[in-house]
Amino acid sequence: MLKFVTDKDGVKRYLVTLKVNGNEYTKMVKANSLLVNFLRGELDLTGTKKACEQADCGACTVLLDGKPVNSCMILTINADGREITTVEGLASNGKLDILQEKFIEHSAPQCGYCTPGILMSAKALLNRNSHPTEYEVREAIAGNLCRCTGYVNYVKAILDAAENQ
């Protein structure tokens, strides 16, 4: 059962606990709080980007219980009790994830705005399928639009990361 307080204007704020990048956060949020705004505004995790805000571009992709989703389409309250990984959660102990290493090596990012989203889609793919084909890589990042249109090096970098993880 969700706990909430009601302010003098009758607006409810609900108590939610989210595990983000391994840390637990307990916060009061309004029902209309979107996960992408919560991550960026409340937790200062601005690596997750906003662009189309209608589930087309994938800039806001995060992992929710390990699955890539558009955080612009999710109510924070809906993520209560669940695990979220953002791009900030990829590196550990000061060491970049193999995907990040390979993105740099292949000069995959151009302007870089879509990069966090592509990293999260790629991470979810490799977690599920450690040796994807090129087709599977392309399908996995098909929900991430790169307006520099630099998909080729992203695909190469992800395949390279899969081989060397």
Partner: peptide, 9 residues
């Protein structure tokens, strides 16, 4: 249907 992220929702 749509893309991978939307198929997860």
């Amino acid at each position: 249907m749509a893309n991978n992220q939307v198929r997860n929702l």
